[in-house]
Amino acid sequence: MSALPAALLESGETTTAEAVLFWTLGPVMVLAALGLLFAKKAVHAALAVIVVMISLAFLYVAQDAVFLGVVQVVVYTGAVMMLFLFVLMLVGVDSSDSLVETIRGQRWIGLLAGIGLGVVLVGVVGRATYGPPVGLTGAAVDDNPTGVAHIIFGQYVFAFEVVGALLVTAALGALVLTHRQRLTPRVGQKERADARVAAGATLTPLPAPGVYARHNAMDVPALGPDGQPLESSVPRVLRVRGQEADAEEFAARTQRVLAGVSQVRGNPPPKAAPEGAAVNAPDLGAAVSDSGQDGPSTGPAGVIGQEDGK
């Protein structure tokens, strides 16, 4: 950075390095500015603006306006364009605006205003005259931020304060316009939990869907301790859509399983399978062996043996 001072010599000539920088960044900026006009996606247009801004910051720094260059990046690129992107992304990933005119003849009015602005700009810029260059040592007495501070808080302090008041008013106006009076007390996490307890609703998470030897999916209700299918174990969305597996079928199967269990527990297994179970014999067998696990004596056989041995 220490090489950059004296970029603008006392004579008003730019150095070669600055000229090279300008002629490199110039085309980039023009291309990016055109990209802003012709980009199809809004985010691409925003990116083009960012490229223009950062290139502009480089040019400021090359002209030894380091403070201006860096603040340009911090404020405009870092905050304002970030806010733009935020809104663009919230609006939609690829929302392309409809080209239907909502105001009649706005295109012609816009064209006319644009040509008018162009004429004014050409007239003003063409007639502008510059005084003789004073050189950097004359323009910035101390270092760059101090010089800028002297100008802002000395020469232009009134304009600066007015702009500040305007911005604060605008921010306050936005707050007031978007403010909504709260009509009911705020319902937060604690209030919801209290209401759930008071209403006697389920405090624990809902039961998970059932896991069966031959079916393991979200659509099958789990069995409660009483052997009945639990409706609440199937996600509400599936129930609303009617994609729940037939609870009746599972209830019936459960009945058969329970019947089998009672027979197993009561007396030696029957020689003949009970009626109706023959069709689903493998199911019954699997289910019985599953449900048999909550019987009292089905710990690992080895453990029982050890206990007996001692």
């Binding site: 380091v66 403070f67 860096v70 603040v71 990046v73 911090v74 690129t77 870092g78 931020p145 101090t146």
Partner: peptide, 17 residues
């Protein structure tokens, strides 16, 4: 340079892009 810390903030804010 005189605004080095601001430069760090600028780099950070562009990096978030």
């Amino acid at each position: 340079f005189p605004v080095a810390v601001l430069y760090i903030l600028a780099c950070a804010s562009v990096g978030v892009y």
